[in-house]
Design a binder for these strands. Structure first.
Lengths: 212, 212, 212, 212
DNA sequence: TATGAATGAGTGTTCATTCAT
DNA sequence: TATGAATGAACACTCATTCAT
């Protein structure tokens, strides 16, 4: 279905070195993009922050936008990895969903700045890179779809098929909401309260479907 | 509570002229920001689009960021106005909430590009302007809080006080979600379906609170 | 036949100002290109030399290559003007040709650096600008063709039609030769000697054609 | 007279290896310089084209300009070799001259891109390298001088001493003209026609000198 | 000898803002 | 009030050259 991430060409041949340097670049750039935004961060700042000369950095990327893509892709990979670990467990569909939501919210809390970054800067990517990033987002969302389906099959969740996709998106968005409304939500709720209340809302919906 | 919008100084004395010119600027800039993003739009382009010379434009603003603030503020006002009109009606709290949600979603659909713009470019505002914009967002959210409270009072809604704020935010976010996940949601749901399903989710929660 | 020179867009509206500034640019750039070559001259140097800030200079051109085109076009215009003045006189075709050659050689001597510049840097122009420059060169050459034809008609020159074009090019090239072989030719010949000898060669050919 | 070509230092001791590698470099660079020009060709491209790593390439040269010199010198050697072969034959001075001209023109046709390269990029050489190249050009020219003198001595050519040098240059330039005006000349003349007409022009002059 | 990753000064170009008219 | 020419700091990116391995 997905043919993996976009390949960013590098002038350097040794793939391990490329991997290593790009990790440096991602780490440095991510911090800066979060602090100052993509457009207000200069390539020289990125280079300095990740301990490379500007010339060396450009041996590993082709453009500043490549850096943004690298960062976005990294953040998504990180999110996906965390979520997959949470799903890789036993229990009924309902139990797994509950854990997945909690884990998702925890990830959102831990990576709130990174997620915010994706929300705000994805649009600065070139067309093709943006498609990749959006596709990745969809893939992550589909992880929740899968858990929902499983719960429907084992009878622990009750949800109309037409609502499955929507619910998956709802879960994603109510998680992300903790990042982009965090500045006010955190004034009123701890992450635990937030998780409890939103989980209730979401699971409730997967219980009383029959009523509608 | 709120001390009204941030004042943007102008070199021009006649307030009606200022008002008129700024409307021109907002209209032109808004289009451009949506099409190209704030950073990739130049002041020259804005001036051309709104039919002013750059010199003249700068008589009515102090910086490019002022334009962004003007645009964001305008969009929020528009959203608020639409919502207030929907709330300015009779019926039980529950009925009013239902209508408000529908109206909110409709507004999100109509103004999806504008809302997206706010989501993506608010962070480009200077600190103080950003506070104003975020505060405005909060004010709009509080409109839903008020409706919820009213429904609780008249007994048509059942919701724990601790959840009121969260629900208001949920309503806001599930509306905005139609803008920033629209590219995929619209492949599966019409606005009507979306509204029906999400309203169910939200109202359901304001009905069975006792269970928890 | 020719639709005039390539239009270089300018950000500045006042055409007289554009004309004036571009003259400044041409003068400054021409000197520098001759001294250092096109590629080794920086845009900053050009700006400084012509008394404009770099930003201002870019209000009147779109790229460094535009400057090169402006310079090449100017040099050609200058050459053409000088030649046309020489042709705008009375006498038999043979007399006119003699004067035209002398004038051409004189122009080459006076503008030797400029002509050399065209020889060496035309290839640095973008494709379309290069066509314009080459076409102009052809137009100038055709001025000699016209004089030759006139001499043939009035019987003062004797030249096969098939040779006319070639002779025109020969005249051009033997003139230009004074610029790009000048460093050694000037060690052995004055411009007058050079002109006399080459004119003899060329006119001789337009006299004894019958022998072949 | 000439102290041979400029010595380009190499880090590598084995002279045969140096010779071999430089042949590689010349072949690769010459192609690129013709296609893209000297300044728009990067050292990386040259290295790639000739199958060496940049590091290795720099063991055999000291700078990019060295490569240009190597290429120019090679082209001249090639031209000189071809011409010498043509002169290494029997016959009267006049016959030898005729053959030399034809051979020269044929060489110009075959190596038109290379000759053009020399015309356009010689000025990019450092001062001292440029002198070498110009001297080489002069040497080649003097080959024609020698043939002319020989024809004068054996009475088959009639030319004033003062014109000998000029005629030699004329021969050179009318040959080179086939390269830098080829784009238009080839539209009207084949190489054979061109050679016939120009040879007539040149030999004619070496026949009727007495008249002047 | 051969390699290729590292370097950073230097390049062409942009654009928010000012200010004389 | 309106204009738009002028400004120059700042930007993304390149590339000849070096040097540790």
């Amino acid at each position: 279905m997905s043919r993996g991430p976009k390949r960013i060409p590098s002038m350097v041949k040794n793939p391990q070195l490329v991997e290593k340097r790009r990790r440096q670049i991602i780490r440095g750039a991510c911090d800066l993009f979060i602090r100052k935004g993509f457009h207000k961060t200069t390539t020289r700042e990125i280079a300095r922050e990740c301990g490379l000369s500007i010339g060396t950095m450009y041996e590993y990327i082709q453009s500043k936008e490549d850096v943004l893509y690298l960062v976005c892709d990294y953040i998504h990979s990180e999110l996906e990895a965390r979520l997959k670990k949470a799903l890789d467990q036993e229990g009924t569909g309902r139990e797994r969903l509950t854990r997945a939501i909690a884990q998702h919210f925890k990830a959102m809390d831990a990576m709130r700045d990174d997620v915010l970054l994706i929300y705000q800067e994805t649009k600065s990517l070139p067309k093709d890179a943006m498609s990749y990033v959006l596709k990745k987002e969809e893939e992550i969302t589909s992880l929740f779809e899968a858990v929902l389906q499983r719960g429907i099959q084992d009878g622990t969740l009750n949800l109309d098929q037409s609502s499955v996709k929507l619910m998956a998106h709802n879960i994603m968005v109510l998680g992300e909401m903790w990042t982009f409304r965090g500045w006010v939500l955190r004034q009123h709720y701890t992450l635990e309260e937030y998780t409890r209340l939103q989980t209730a809302l979401l699971l409730d919906e997967c219980t009383h479907q029959s009523r509608r």
